[in-house]
Design a protein around this nucleic acid. Structure first.
Lengths: 205, 205, 205, 205
DNA sequence: CATGAATGAGCATTCATTCAT
DNA sequence: CATGAATGAATGCTCATTCAT
């Protein structure tokens, strides 16, 4: 009707759809983080937006679908970082360090954009998200490549990849709990542990 | 009420009470393992016993409480094993090895006594159970003691304990997935990784 | 606790269960009659009782199940009447007459025990209830028997049974609409029509 | 807006309006036939057109209204056939025969133009559509006229009209269920039954 | 008028919890 | 204490209807 409408080729309709989708995803991220996947309800999610309950179903068919969208999004944002870490690395040591740093960086940012009331009452759960599966695949492939070209000893690649994930998750959580999250230090600790064990972990001052 | 009751020094009431509590705990363990904490309902639990629904509330106030009791029970059963591992160890290496072996042994047994259909469709979850907290405390104390007497380098004890838990959980899961769970091999891998990193992990044949 | 309790061997629990089931069935009958099967909701039904919504599901798994229970009940009550009509009949004429009379009697009674607000707003529906199927089977068998022994001409038994049902339903409805429902007259009309057509139908005074 | 609009005397607006209304009615007929009145949703109907959901409400206020329009349409198409049957008939017998034939012809055609998956699982329902009311009025009037001029006995015209409707519906349904629907035979059966009862119904070969 | 996203009342169903027996 | 029926809040989801564009 007005020039403004003409000037806006996207149209408020389109803008609103994208914005609503983002709002739901953001709310879902918050809610899943606070309550865990199972405990979270669709109502919790839409309550975190200014939308009506039915609107949720215009964007996602179920709680499961919004979770997958969220996880895919996480994996999509994380994988390039992991790949960059591998490409920039000139040694296995640098690769491991870069990978842990990328992961810790990622969770710091993911945590920052949420309000994080962290009431954490219920039994703490940790999900095998797609982004975790991506770490597993990446680490395992990187490791097998390193073993193949003699850059790493012939260890059990499956166990090692699992160990890396376990370390990343737990040390990552511990890092977040500390006042200023020191990404570099945590990555050095994790990579050093993997590479040389206790001897390789940085000494405490 | 009857002479039989008088003749029974334990008292049917008392015996029944203990038995009922155990029955509920056993059913809860099964149900949580099969359905996961959130998906499990109090109904599922009492259905696994020959008790009536109302009776559940004579023993536990809620699903959360029975879960905690279960976890405490796990910790109670696990802690002595961990302590024994520490006492029998003549070196830090032996200690770590024994601790991991105790944990892997524990989850193998815990898994064995359940039917384990493991349909595991939904996003995999991992709980921060009290028994995990016990590992954390134990490992951290053991480590700090080792550091204090110079048996281990001065690393970040918090990070290291977290890493141990992460490794234990993830490598433990991977071990369970393999056909015959090789406890000794898994423990050697984990302990070797902690102690010497990749160089310390056993070579694959 | 009291003598009354002892004097009541059934126990209030049992009595209440039966009573509740009956209450739900009665409410369902009313609701189905007023709104039709499809339009009726479980909520409508329980709203017709003094029970809570969840209680419905202690007795029936769904709307469909309560409908079937209702229809089975109707068939169970109606079939003996139909059988009696056949056994008491000494001719095909008497049989038809008795069968229609039984059906009209049945719907009169079924109608009497309901409050019958009959707001009848929505498009009128008529259900193929099991009791209708019973009429169909009964009439068809009775007819085929009559044809077999030469008591009735060799007409299309399927069509004739259908016609009987159609007449029973429509004339039955018309009968109920009249001030005092004259069961005998309606049955004579229907049976006369079947037997001799217009000539057989009773003359109006 | 454009020259084209000026060149079009009907007006695209007008043509579209009629076409849209017809499209909705056609879709509604299909949907009601397949799902039944209650199970059908407005969404189902508009999904059967290329219109947007909101557009439905520019033509009909509700599902009920489109149903009524549909039924009125049916009556409008059916009534002339019934009138023709009366006018062409030279006797009451011919009239009845023609009327039944017209009805059976009508439902055969109505059925033909629809895909008719006929999943028909749920309790079968039959609606008192306006076209049925038309039959009732027509038959009743025709019958009363016949009685008045002595062509038919003085029977209860209300009951007889009801019986005709019941027979038409039930025998009509039975006819549709048979492989090739034999309209003539069905009409002869129905008319014969009305006129002479069992003796009047055609013998089976 | 056409559009289709937003709305929110409403529905079937589940489930933790209570309480009369 | 055990029982198990009753309760009703809560959940996932649908759908008729509205309204800004």
């Amino acid at each position: 009707m007005s020039d403004a409408a003409i000037a806006d080729p996207v149209g408020k309709r389109e803008r609103t759809k994208v914005a609503n989708r983002q709002a739901i995803l953001a709310a879902a991220r918050r809610v899943f983080a606070q309550l865990g996947y199972e405990a979270a309800t669709v109502r919790d999610i839409i309550r975190g937006t200014d939308l009506a309950s039915g609107t949720f179903y215009n964007y996602f068919r179920s709680k499961e679908e919004v979770f997958e969208a969220l996880a895919d999004d996480g994996a999509r944002r994380f994988k390039p970082l992991l790949r960059a870490a591998r490409e920039q690395a000139r040694s296995f040591t640098e690769y491991l360090n870069g990978a842990f740093r990328a992961y810790f960086q990622f969770i710091v940012e993911d945590n920052a954009l949420e309000g994080r009331p962290i009431e954490e009452r219920r039994p703490h759960v940790r999900l095998d998200t797609p982004e975790m599966m991506a770490v597993y695949q990446e680490v395992r492939q990187g490791l097998e490549a390193a073993i193949a070209r003699g850059a790493a000893p012939r260890v059990d690649a499956d166990y090692l990849a699992c160990a890396c994930i376990g370390i990343a998750q737990e040390v990552g959580s511990a890092m977040l709990r500390r006042a200023p999250a020191d990404i570099v230090a945590a990555a050095e600790f994790a990579a050093g542990l993997i590479l040389k064990g206790l001897d390789g972990a940085p000494r405490k001052s």
